[in-house]
């Protein structure tokens, strides 16, 4: 293997690794705050990517209908749960976010010349449509089960994954799509050609990581989420609503998923069911980090990206086998390092 191929593979691996990194961060975050192993993370990636492809083609993305429907359901549910003590302001807020916002967005999307918009605006519209589905999903599926065991939450997460894949097929069809890269530029560094999109991915990932760092370190909401992660009951006693923490976490997770999708779609063709495998690779990374450490998860993600790109060169048929088997030595190491017996919750 000559050095230029090696550099090319490394670049490819790092680009994918950056995407796995942000997915891994989201998974670690969701698990820490809500104890949910967030299998549907990959669906947000796929929906973000495919909605972008639809918008690029000048059509209104099918995720808008999902948003209208999910918003309506959330509002009905809020109305039902408020039937005893009618909290006007809470209901008004719910109506605003879950009914009015999707309607306004629908009007906007039907009026705008979607295909002609600048790429950044298209991406923004996609985020405006898909990201709110995160908190709605939490409200509909997980909030009624917030106190359930990790196993039950996991099964619900998997059921939601099935459901979303089915819906994805319905609104996007079976064909795959690839979107325009955010930058066509080619940067020459010695013998290495660095693609502009690679740089965009790296920059966006770093920005996101920095943003999360600031959010969790400096903002009150970020600290509330961290408090919930450390001690749910203690946080509740301090007036942090677990439902709010859950919805906020899902908002962030959906944001990260959609961003990952926007960055991933120009690299590889995305189908309605592509999200699962990509998300699982984020999982492998998160497991390497022990589902608790953000920096280790990021390191794991880069490792997964590099392993994937190099093994696709040497043994492409066994690419996925290798990536998922990577987890075994990692778990073995963790198992040797861990000692003592603990009670599971």
């Amino acid at each position: 293997m000559d050095p230029s191929i090696m550099l090319f593979l490394a670049q490819d691996g790092i680009t994918n690794g950056a995407i796995y990194t942000i997915l891994a961060l989201a998974l670690v975050m969701v698990f820490a705050v809500t104890r949910i192993i967030f299998i549907p993370q990959g669906e947000f990636l796929a929906w973000g990517a495919l909605s972008m492809a639809t918008v690029e083609a000048g059509h209104v993305p099918g995720t808008l209908w999902v948003l209208l429907l999910a918003g309506g359901l959330v509002f009905v549910l809020d109305l039902w749960s408020q039937r005893q003590r009618r909290d006007r302001r809470a209901l008004l807020r719910s109506a605003g976010w879950n009914v009015a916002y999707p309607l306004v967005l629908a009007g906007l999307l039907s009026l705008l010349p979607l295909a002609a918009l600048p790429q950044a605006v298209q991406a923004l519209l996609v985020m405006l449509v898909v990201v709110p589905l995160g908190p709605m999903l939490y409200r509909l599926a997980f909030q009624p089960l917030a106190e359930a065991s990790v196993l039950v939450l996991l099964i619900v997460a998997v059921s939601i994954h099935f459901l979303l894949v089915g819906v994805g097929l319905l609104i996007f069809g079976p064909e795959g799509s690839r979107t325009q890269p955010f930058s066509e530029a080619q940067l020459e560094l010695g013998s290495l050609l660095v693609g502009g999109h690679t740089l965009v991915v790296m920059a966006a990932s770093l920005l996101l990581i920095g943003g999360l760092y600031l959010f969790f370190g400096r903002s009150l909401y970020g600290k509330a989420l961290r408090a919930t992660a450390v001690n749910r009951n203690g946080a509740r006693l301090m007036g942090i609503s677990p439902a709010l923490a859950g919805r906020l976490t899902f908002l962030l997770a959906a944001l990260i998923g959609v961003m990952a999708g926007l960055m991933f779609a120009p690299l590889s063709t995305v189908y309605y069911d592509s999200g699962f495998l990509v998300g699982l690779k984020g999982f492998v990374a998160a497991i390497i980090g022990g589902l608790g450490s953000y920096p280790l998860a990021a390191g794991g993600a880069l490792l997964v990206g590099l392993l994937e790109s190099f093994s696709s060169f040497w043994a492409s048929a066994f690419k996925d086998v290798l990536v998922f088997t990577l987890i075994l030595p990692v778990l073995m190491a963790r198992s040797i390092l861990s000692h003592g017996v603990e009670d599971d919750e």
Binding site: F31, I37, V150, L154, L280, F283, V284, I287, L291, F318, D320, V321, F324, T325, I327, L328, L331, M332, R334, S335, S338, E342, D344, E345
Partner: peptide
């Protein structure tokens, strides 16, 4: 490899080798 770890590793670990064996 996996059983000595705490609860939630096992489902994720089994997911990974489930895929590996399938491939």
């Amino acid at each position: 490899v996996t059983l000595r770890l705490s609860g939630h590793y096992l489902p994720l670990g089994t997911m990974a080798w489930g895929i590996s064996l399938y491939f």
